[in-house]
């Protein structure tokens, strides 16, 4: 195992985050604050509580989950895409480092970056509303798991993408809309029955509700389902990654 190599990729990726500090940390803070002002105050004055939780509190786990999904995905996908794009990937391909180590370095760095941003959003939210977390360890473990899975997802897409459009395809057209429709800002029990059923096919519903359950003990889906969906997604991605490694797909010509 080339531990130093793995650690070097991890360190390098986090230093890249530091270089784009404004973009990667300050902007989620501003966005979150805006969500609170727009949704928390505007809608919160109409919808006072959901399942006994104030509306401002209700949206916090959803906002954190949305940030975890978006940031772990984009950090990992751009992390591997750029070296491929500018050619500096040669330094990894010619080094005595395995595919597993390369993936682990990028995915763990992206996970870390997402969790940092999630933590910051939690901190910002505390300015707007008190947040007594019911199952803090569960919240942490679940956040790590989901960030890891989406970092893996981003890594696969970053490997696959051969231009910028493809790189932006999933975050713009899949992840962002599915997060918004996944019950960040409402409980799906508020939807008409037909749309409730449709929504259950959105995997992000399980992730957002899993974290909300850890926070407040309320959820639209059973927490076991949240875990099962996340783990299934992880197994699927491990399969894809294993296939990529076996074929050297898109890395080695």
């Amino acid at each position: 195992m080339n531990w130093i190599g793995l650690w070097t990729i991890y360190k390098k990726e986090l230093q890249r985050t530091r270089r784009v500090l404004f973009q990667s940390v300050v902007s989620p803070v501003i966005t979150t604050a805006l969500y609170f002002v727009v949704f928390g105050s505007a809608i919160g004055s109409a919808v006072t509580t959901i399942d006994g939780v104030s509306y401002a509190q209700f949206i916090v786990p959803g906002l954190i989950m949305m940030a975890l999904l978006a940031n772990s995905f984009s950090a990992a996908s751009s992390g591997i895409y750029f070296p491929k794009f500018i050619g500096s990937i040669y330094e990894l391909l010619s080094a005595p480092i395995s595919y597993v180590e390369i993936t682990a370095g990028y995915v763990l760095a992206a996970t870390t970056r997402a969790l940092l941003i999630g933590g910051i959003i939690f901190g910002v939210a505390l300015f707007f509303t008190p947040l007594p977390v019911l199952h803090p360890w569960w919240a942490l473990v679940f956040s790590i798991l989901v960030s890891f899975v989406f970092a893996l997802f981003g890594f696969v897409v970053g490997l696959w993408a051969s231009n910028f459009e493809q790189l932006g395809l999933l975050p713009t057209f899949v992840i962002a809309p599915l997060s918004f429709l996944g019950g960040v800002f409402y409980s799906i029990s508020m939807l008409p029955p037909f749309w409730q059923t449709v929504t259950l096919f959105n995997p992000l519903v399980y992730m957002i509700n899993g974290l909300r359950w850890a926070f407040f003990g309320i959820t639209d889906v059973h927490p076991v389902w949240s875990m099962v969906v996340t783990l299934l997604f992880m197994i699927l991605l491990f399969g894809v990654v294993a296939w990529i490694f076996k074929t050297g797909y898109k890395l080695r010509k």
Binding site: T8, I86, I97
Partner: peptide, 26 residues
């Protein structure tokens, strides 16, 4: 390996690119 093309990450410093290069080799 010294590649033919200038495959470098332009935001890195000379020093950090050296430390990474050695790090990748474990």
């Amino acid at each position: 390996l010294v590649p033919q093309e200038l495959f470098l990450e332009i935001f890195e410093t000379v020093w950090s690119t050296m430390t990474y290069a050695r790090g990748f080799f474990g």
